[in-house]
Amino acid sequence: MELDEPTPYEEDWLDVLDELRNSPAVDVLNEAREDIDVTAEDTAFDDLAEWEGIEIGAELRSAYIRFAQLGSQWRTVEPYPYLTGEFQLTPLPLAVHEDAPEFPSSLYSDEQRDMATGFRVIDASPFTGTGSFVALRLQPGVENPEVWYSDHRTNTLWPMNLDYRAYMDALRLTKGVFDWQHLFTEAPLGDEEFAGAAADLRVMLDVFVEIFPDHDYSDLKARLRERT
């Protein structure tokens, strides 16, 4: 296989874009479908280990994509209930060498901002500019980094109870519906503060069963029931 040809895993991600683009229930507002960046390769992880003493486990190295950018901003159309979503992925070998995002001192504690120096953004929403993003937290001695969700609406950093590979798997199911990440945080989805997010997640799981019938949403439905 040529270096610039997509792997089967990368083909799965192109299928996600095609599912959104080809669904009569969805209006794709913006899409990022860039070429494979052949510099996004395993040697980046070796450099990370050599320069910063941070090892990335072999399992994660098999779960990343190499597209320079890949993402979609979309919304449902009538007669379906209104939903919006967005994701934009940065290749893991490139993300690990990016700078950490900045957190204003007026909104976050010194402890939070110190912890976030290890953050490397892997998923964001640049088209809508919400400011929310998902990051890996790089730490020496941790081969399978924590995944954190920065929620702009609550100005809160939420650890997610899944790893990078599981995050990518869940994202393929949810297509980036806003706040889907809270299915995997400890956010109190039954509280009034999260009523809007919980309502959107219910709509997602009801509608997606119909418009994306090739996917199994039973685990996500069970998770939402447990959380609310």
Rank of each mutant, 00 (worst) to 15 (best):
F212Y: 13
R21C: 11
F208C: 03
A68N: 11
E5V: 14
D151H: 07
D4Y: 10
K221F: 06
H182K: 13
G131W: 08
R153W: 14
E192M: 04
D200W: 00
L205R: 12
A222I: 02
L189R: 00
N144M: 06
R61G: 13
P91D: 02
V26C: 07
E52K: 13
A95H: 04
L92C: 12
P101F: 03
E143Y: 01
V134M: 04
V38S: 03
T128M: 09
V209W: 00
E31V: 15
N144R: 10
D18S: 14
G196P: 01
R66H: 04
S109W: 02
A63F: 04
T117G: 05
E193C: 06
I65C: 11
R61H: 06
L189F: 01
L205Q: 12
R225S: 14
D4F: 15
V121E: 10
P24M: 02
P140C: 00
P140S: 03
F103L: 15
D163S: 13
A68L: 04
L60W: 07
D12N: 08
A40W: 09
N22L: 15
P145Q: 03
G53T: 05
A222L: 15
Y64A: 13
R75T: 10
P101S: 01
L48N: 12
R153P: 01
N22G: 09
T39C: 05
R227Q: 08
F127E: 13
